[in-house]
Design a protein around this nucleic acid. Structure first.
Length: 231
DNA sequence: AGCGATGATTGGAC
DNA sequence: GTCCAATCATCGCT
């Protein structure tokens, strides 16, 4: 049995789906499941979705596409998650355009049906996956995180609750929020270790300055410099 | 081809 | 578990 993925217009055997674990499926959350037009309450405690979960896009049904290495979620499409009732009344096409039995599909797509060996043996660099493109985070997500960063410039460390809120508002995952803040702090020299290092150096410089004004203590100053300064 | 920007990953510290 | 620095990978641009 093959499955038709309307996001890539390709058919796959279920065993070809290369990665079924939380690390990759977490990055495949369609953004609009958090949106205002979506009744999110039924899935409030579900923070990731499995490869093979079914979604509706512009009237067409599609499976969540496979999590190839370096694959990125498609943030630009207006995904709608199908709840269980509509899932069973929907249809899906196979490689020849025939309708498939959804109850069989859902059973076959359970990650438990495949061993970790089967999954890890898949070739992540197959031609099917090589077309994946690196995508930027949604502008809205970056804007929201940038605002938060500027508002907390002296301690840019969101709590877990704040990370979840930023992720929800931006339509991205908490993992992506973590990576964004880590990169942002590091690249703006605003991590705690770097701030501490700068503060120590500044204090050392001030002490050197004071010593040099108060009396002639060249020897102490040089020892101080050798001990605390990097150059 | 080279480069800067950016998102993701990794191994280690704690 | 979180956070870090370093690094990788891919984008757009020239």
């Amino acid at each position: 049995m093959y499955y038709y993925d309307t996001t890539s217009n390709q058919s796959y055997h279920p065993a070809e789906y290369p990665i079924v674990n939380s690390t990759y499926t977490e990055s495949l959350i369609p953004p609009n499941v958090y949106g205002s037009t979506y009744n999110y309450s039924n899935y409030y405690n579900q923070n990731y979705f499995n490869v093979g979960d079914q979604y509706q896009y512009e009237g067409e049904y599609a499976f969540l596409r496979p999590a190839c290495q370096n694959s990125q979620p498609n943030y630009n499409k207006n995904w709608t998650f199908l709840d269980n009732s509509s899932l069973h009344s929907s249809y899906t096409l196979d490689s020849t355009g025939n309708s498939l039995d959804n109850s069989k599909i859902n059973a076959s797509f359970s990650p438990d049906n495949y061993t970790s060996t089967e999954v890890s043996n898949q070739n992540l660099n197959s031609t099917r996956c090589s077309k994946s493109r690196k995508q930027l985070l949604p502008d809205e997500a970056v804007d929201i995180m940038n605002d938060w960063f500027q508002d907390h410039i002296h301690n840019p460390y969101p709590t877990m609750e704040e990370k979840e809120k930023l992720a929800r508002l931006g339509g991205i995952t908490v993992k992506q929020v973590n990576a964004w803040f880590s990169n942002r702090r590091n690249r703006s020299q605003n991590t705690k270790p770097k701030r501490i290092k700068r503060a120590i150096e500044q204090e050392m410089n001030e002490m050197i300055h004071q010593l040099s004004y108060n009396s002639n203590k060249t020897e102490i100053i040089e020892k101080f410099r050798r001990t605390f300064m990097s150059n």
